[in-house]
């Protein structure tokens, strides 16, 4: 993990409200693993609005070119400022940070379930999985409408099969991406070899909760990548916590840090709390 001011290679709009930001940092590019994020300062002068850094998941990292790619959606003040950064500028970054997706050696099929701007870190994972020819990867992408189903072509280029769902039916299945996941798993899991399967999830909380519940019904292990407002991202402020049921209530480990123990957690540990 480093803190450095790194050059912006480009920062371009790839879909409605979504941007692809490429940064040059050979250290971060070498060290990054799927599931991790960087904490970006989105202002020129510290202390000016917006005050805090913004955690953004890593979409891709290329140790050869020494670059990392981030995809973010303009959600508020921080990402709005970020969207205006031009190539040639420099950004202050802290990273790579957080836990990574863990793929046990026994796993042969990985279902990636992404919603909206939760999709990008799953691409990084799919790319890593592709290096291991033994693992079959199926991707399920969901969003409110087709303009927000991002990265579908990137997954296709990797050669993984992509299933899409939109709330308004403008692309793929009309309805929830979790329903789509359930129908595919139901079809495939007749001769259930559950330990050979894994579900990796990243997206809106409600979607992750539903996908985690579905994984529980099938008995397939799942990992979720969570998002929380963050202060330090260094593990000191205890601001970005999630409640877990693996520690007893009242224990100091009952609330774990999304920045340090997370963002990737085993789904059965999470006490889902929509706020």
């Amino acid at each position: 993990m480093i803190q450095a001011t790194v050059p912006v290679v480009f920062n371009k709009r790839i879909a409605k409200d979504h941007y692809l930001l490429r940064l040059k940092s050979s250290t971060v590019a070498k060290k990054s693993k799927p599931g991790q994020f960087v904490h970006l300062l989105c202002v020129e002068k510290p202390g000016m609005a917006p005050l805090l850094r913004r955690p953004i998941s890593i979409f891709d990292a290329d140790p050869k070119t020494g670059t990392i790619d981030l995809i973010y959606k303009v959600m508020g003040e921080g990402t709005e400022v970020l969207s205006k950064v031009r190539s040639g500028a420099a950004l202050d970054l802290l990273g790579p940070l957080g836990s990574t997706f863990q793929i046990p050696a026994s796993v042969q099929t990985v279902y990636l379930v992404g919603g909206g701007v939760g999709i990008p870190p799953l691409y990084f994972l799919a790319k890593e999985l592709k290096k291991n020819h033994r693992v079959r990867t199926e991707v399920f992408l969901g969003a409110r409408t087709k303009e927000w189903v991002i990265c579908a072509s990137d997954f296709k280029k990797l050669g993984v099969s992509v299933h899409t769902a939109t709330d308004d039916g403008s692309l793929g299945h009309r309805g929830s991406v979790v329903d789509l996941l359930v129908s595919v798993i139901t079809r495939e899991t007749k001769q259930a070899r559950l330990k050979e399967k894994l579900i990796c999830i990243c997206g809106p909380t409600r979607m992750m909760q539903a996908a985690a519940a579905a994984s529980g019904r099938f008995g397939i292990p799942a990992q979720v990548s969570l998002e929380e407002r963050m202060g330090c991202a260094m593990g000191v402020c205890m601001g970005c916590v999630v409640e877990v049921n693996s520690a007893p209530a009242g224990s100091h480990a009952r609330f774990q840090r999304v920045c340090t123990e997370g963002p990737v957690f085993p789904s059965e540990e999470i006490v889902w709390n929509i706020h």
Binding site: M48, L51, R229, M230, C240, V241, N273
Partner: peptide, 15 residues
């Protein structure tokens, strides 16, 4: 164990 989440929120020049 501390308080439930959310625990932090950014405000104008502060948190």
């Amino acid at each position: 164990s501390g308080n439930p989440a959310p625990r932090i929120y950014e405000t104008a020049s502060g948190m």
